[in-house]
């Protein structure tokens, strides 16, 4: 009950933050506008609907990820420090509230906020794709594309269920990133935490580059150990980004549902570890 009460208050507070609202509105606006971009470029007349949808999916998921990462960072870095700044933490922790309940409540609130924002962006994204698919089926110019392409286009479903898995994976990476910045917020200042969180995301996103650096010719044992540690310690955010799989069905992911389930398990485990570390630090933190 206590965790849920703190979570609800956190959601109410977070959704009223102007900076979050701006990111959300801009992201949703750009996802909707992507419909007109693709029409302007008129890919469908040259390369078929599938190329057009590829552009839309790529843009939409990218926009969601970008906005969501900023929202996760902004939300995560201020989640606990803001309670100190506003002194609301004193009256809460003076009540029979265990410290882990406070951290869990704040984090659950952040997850719910991210779920709402990702949900809104996701619905917009899926609606945009469906609208484009319906529109493209009606206007496709058979003369301008090959017969084979026209046949393939006519077989494209109006609704691709993989889009839901795509949105879910985007949300999972926000969850992991939020747990990391929440942990950092108990150690670093807000500004340092913001950049640290962003750095963790970027390096985690480039995990394949990191592992290549570790195995590169000429790398000494220290460098190998360093890059190997980074590779294993930081979350592999690139694995959550499946636009490639979503855009190119021929890619290695054959079952999006099981892949998403596996990534959810990985994300939950990582989040749990970060959360336990945050609780252990907060238990000893003076307020």
């Amino acid at each position: 009950m206590i965790i849920w009460a703190i979570a609800k208050t956190t959601v109410g507070d977070a959704l009223r933050r102007k900076v979050l609202q701006v990111f959300l509105v801009v992201a949703i606006g750009l996802i909707v506008l992507s419909l007109s971009f693709s029409q302007t470029l008129s890919f469908s007349s040259q390369r078929g609907i599938s190329a057009d949808l590829m552009l839309l999916k790529s843009f939409g998921l990218g926009m969601m990820a970008l906005a969501g990462i900023f929202i996760s960072l902004i939300l995560g870095v201020s989640l606990i420090p803001q309670e100190f700044e506003r002194r609301t933490i004193y009256t809460i922790l003076a009540k029979p509230v265990k410290r882990y309940e406070f951290i869990a409540g704040k984090f659950l609130g952040a997850l719910l906020t991210l779920a709402i924002t990702t949900g809104l962006m996701g619905i917009t994204f899926i609606a945009t794709i469906v609208a484009k698919t319906i529109g493209a089926h009606n206007i496709v110019d058979v003369k301008s594309v090959s017969a084979l392409q026209a046949k393939a286009d006519s077989q494209i479903a109006f609704f691709d269920v993989n889009m839901i898995w795509g949105v879910a994976l985007v949300y999972l990476q926000f969850m992991v990133l939020s747990s990391i910045v929440l942990l950092f917020s108990l150690i670093f200042t807000t500004t340092v935490n913001f950049f640290m969180g962003a750095a963790v995301y970027v390096v985690g996103f480039m995990s394949t580059v990191v592992t290549s650096l570790g195995g590169a010719e000429g790398a000494n044992s220290f460098q190998r150990a360093f890059f190997k540690t980074i590779y294993y310690v930081l979350p592999r955010f690139d694995q959550f980004n499946i636009p490639n799989q979503l855009l190119h069905p021929e890619a290695q992911v054959t079952n999006m549902a099981s892949y998403t389930g596996l990534m959810a398990l990985y994300g939950l485990l990582y989040t749990l570890l970060a959360l336990v570390a945050a609780i252990l630090i907060f238990e000893r933190k003076e307020v």
Binding site: G12, D13, R87, T88
Partner: peptide, 17 residues
């Protein structure tokens, strides 16, 4: 803590509530 309470100097609350 079940039996105590605290009124800080200039108490701060969530303003949206």
């Amino acid at each position: 803590k079940e039996r105590i309470s605290y009124l800080p100097e200039s108490p701060y609350f969530y303003e949206h509530m």
